[in-house]
Write a protein that binds this DNA or RNA. Sequence first.
DNA 1: ATTTAGACCTGTCAGC
DNA 2: TGCTGACAGGTCTAAA
Length: 331
Amino acid sequence: MPELPEVEFTARQLRATVLNATIQDVHVFWERTIGTLDAPTFRSLLAGQSLLEVRRRGKYLLIDLGHARAPELLMTIHRRMTGNLYLLPPGWEIDTSLRLEDAAAWNTRGPDFRYASFAQKREQAGVPVLVREAEAMYYDPADLSHCRVCFDFADGRRLLFNDARKFGRIELWPAEREAEALSGLGPEPLSDEFTVEVLTGSLSTRKGPIKAVLLDQQVVAGLGNIYADEALFLARIHPLRPANSLTEEELMRLRDSIVSVLAAGIEYGGTTFSGYRGLSGEQGENYNHLKAYHRTGESKICIRCGGLITSQVIAQRTAHFCPRCQRLTSE
DNA sequence: ATTTAGACCTGTCAGC
DNA sequence: TGCTGACAGGTCTAAA
């Protein structure tokens, strides 16, 4: 779900709230979320660690952990499609008696589940109320029931990793193996290293559609379906153009468009159209500023030429674009 | 060597 | 109402 702007926004929120907090305990409700480690190991590695720094690289959230000042562990969090982080104030209850096997049981869908409403489903399944509401304003109860990992801080606050589809991953690495943890990521689009020359170089060998290539994290780290569509719209480049066919001018426009579209996304607090939430459950405003993504259909007029935005599946993902502004043929 | 189905998962929505 | 199929912010793997 989240792309670079959503991860960056969350990183900034975390930096402002949980820096120097100490992890007291950890509860794992879905073991695959923590990758190859088992829950007891994960727990014992983290207990007593303090959050020294919060960073971002591509779509990865990075948390430096240590017992004193020196970083010992790197925690990488990738939210994939539906992962969200919530910071709960002290006073919220959470059913930590829930064990992995119980969680696995109520996380399994039976044939009777499918056609009932969400609430009914949960009730029928005997889903325990994981988090009891205190002074909730933003928190979505449905999303809170998808808690996969819970970090208890010594000051009573809790950080939840919620993830309906269970694609998200949290990994622990020795601090000195950061490069390995992040191997395969291309240039950071909001840094000086993302130049036209770099972009030109990585596109020159790629014959596939530019839309598909932009989703390759080795080309640029952090673009996903929303912001790739937005960047191509802004640069007036058709998503099916072979990546290595772009002119010098188009490459410059594309680089600038990627940067400005991502910066705007951060500015507006990320894009929410269903699942994405901020640390306190607040929604991002960027959805109201999108110019191509999700703007297909009759009433969706191109803000530039008045034509109709259309959509087409490219490389297994839906691309949204204006066929009038984004020409496939060069003329 | 690249592309591309399939897998991993649950929830929602349009439509019959 | 009951049910089916398609689709969703991502990325890895194996097969073509």
